[in-house]
Amino acid sequence: MALEQDALALWQSLLDRQDRYFGRIKGGRIGIVERATFASPPGAVLVWDIAGGRARAGADRYRCPGGYDLLLVVPDGARWADPGRLAPDPVAALRRLIRRGEVLFFVPAGRDELRARGFEDLVEALGVPFLGTCH
């Protein structure tokens, strides 16, 4: 997943229209990483750093643990660098992909920490019941 400045600018443009998802979050980091990198770090990771109700897109070197609150593991391939894949609503698109098993959802942060920082709505919007277990 090569993340050029142009791609990051497009990501930023997309994230800037998602205040309803990030407005309640007091701070945090979401990582989007390809399966190969997740299985064998290091590699590139797309990060959404959330502060002040706004998510800022950036590229980083994937580490585990890497301070991610939520981690989305996507199939290998350059297409994930393209924000158009998730436009216009990246959270709804990710929810569908998580449901289909195409994207894997992980929660590196603890429950209480996530709740304290306002992640509950976002986790639910991604289709994962915040307090649900056992199907």
Partner: peptide, 19 residues
């Protein structure tokens, strides 16, 4: 506790459980 133990440190998929 603030953690759980596993054979490998694979992160949780549900918020309920411990890192």
């Amino acid at each position: 506790l603030g953690y759980c133990v596993q054979p490998s440190a694979v992160p949780q998929t549900l918020p309920h459980f411990r890192p």
